[in-house]
Design a protein around this nucleic acid. Structure first.
Lengths: 220, 220
DNA sequence: CTAGTATATGTCAGCAGCTGACACTTAATG
DNA sequence: CATTAAGTGTCAGCTGCTGACATATACTAG
């Protein structure tokens, strides 16, 4: 419908140009001290045009997380049918990491820069948290639907997802902070943290309720 | 040194006035659509003065969380010596909830408004996440110190704290969303969610490592 | 009580993020 | 080639936020 036209190609081109130069500028001179005008000027584009591509300055920094999230969600849905939720989240995540990040494409380069950025700037980190939260709700809804329970009343689906995100964040933070920014280091650290988190969670906790008579009576 | 002077009293007065009118305006007409000028005008104060009290518009909305956090941290530290971390977090939280929120003082009113606000506006929610994160690091550091481990290398302290925050957030969300904004409802729901989370976490997982020979070899 | 000092506030100018409106250029379509 | 639609630039303007300077008000010493 709208593929491979000259127009579309140009659009994609300026979009990636904006992302790349923005990431580089952010990394070299800081996120908050870099103005949108600078980015736009570096791509020979007006500031107004920038904001037609990205609603906010934050969006350009976290842009490449969006597609990854979509892929992740799809992967998760594939596994949800025959895996426990937490395990499905972990394996889906690992898969996405392998295909998206560990490959040495331009996309993976961008992704790594974004990860570093999000770890450096508290604002970007918070923005990323917001994204996680949004996707998390969708994931939790999927789990709840699979289990046939009400996601608004039963905390377990969201808890599972939040635990998972927590582990991912902690793993990422551990990897970035100390020294290395290796590709595999990141993946390994997150895997380790996920493993610890998974070990912490009681066996069977993230499995469907085979027979639940009470709504929330599993306490005490 | 600086208590109970006329000046100090006035300052405190305008500060609380700013908070209260800000919260009311935010709740009635939305956070983002309310301008700082409106708030300042409603308190008969210049916009510049507003920003001398609060660094950002966000800060006034989440102001009353700060003191609560301090109290929470202090409570936690008291219990860390003779309780497992996750349990200490839960009991400390419950204590703070009892004394700060369930009491029907003006402070509790403000707190409830802030909770509702933070649940309504994604931006404020993210801001709150950032605060949680910051306090979380301090809490994790305390746990790591108590355990005699390196918080930058071992993910468990941060994981414990993040799991706790996740449960608190989920519980709060469950309570706010459906209907009631009861005082006790909030506390009860969070307690329930914390109980579920606590049940999910394996017994002994958040206890100090009595003999750890390997650094991260607990992974199957 | 008065004079002097410190502190809080107001005013003003200005920057950065972001948006609507309008005009212009350029690619797509017949 | 002419028409249409889409992308872009320019401009004006709002909101959040800050520095600089002047003014008013509370504290303090004599």
């Amino acid at each position: 419908m709208s593929d491979s036209g000259l127009r579309e190609r140009k659009k994609q081109q300026t979009r990636t140009a904006l992302i790349d130069t923005a990431l580089d500028l952010f990394l070299t001179q800081g996120y908050e001290t870099t103005t949108v005008d600078e980015i736009a000027a570096a791509v020979n584009v007006s500031q107004r045009t920038f904001f037609r591509y990205f609603a906010t300055k934050e969006e350009v920094a976290l842009a490449c997380f969006v597609e990854t999230e979509h892929a992740f969600f799809a992967e998760f849905m594939l596994r949800l049918d025959h895996e426990a939720p937490f395990a499905a989240l972990c394996t889906a995540w690992r898969t996405i990491m392998q295909t998206t990040i560990l490959s040495n494409t331009e996309r993976s380069q961008r992704f790594r820069k974004s990860v570093r950025l999000a770890e450096m700037s508290p604002i970007l980190f918070a923005g990323n948290l917001r994204r996680n939260l949004k996707v998390g709700k969708q994931l939790a809804d999927a789990i709840a639907t699979r289990w046939g329970i009400d996601p608004e009343a039963d905390p377990r689906p969201i808890l599972i997802v939040e635990f998972f995100w927590a582990a991912v964040r902690v793993g990422t933070g551990l990897c970035i902070h100390p020294d290395t920014t290796d590709l595999e280091e990141l993946s390994t650290r997150i895997d380790e943290t996920l493993a610890i988190a998974g070990e912490a969670l009681r066996f069977g906790w993230d499995t469907p309720p085979v027979q639940q008579a009470e709504s929330s009576g599993a306490i005490s």
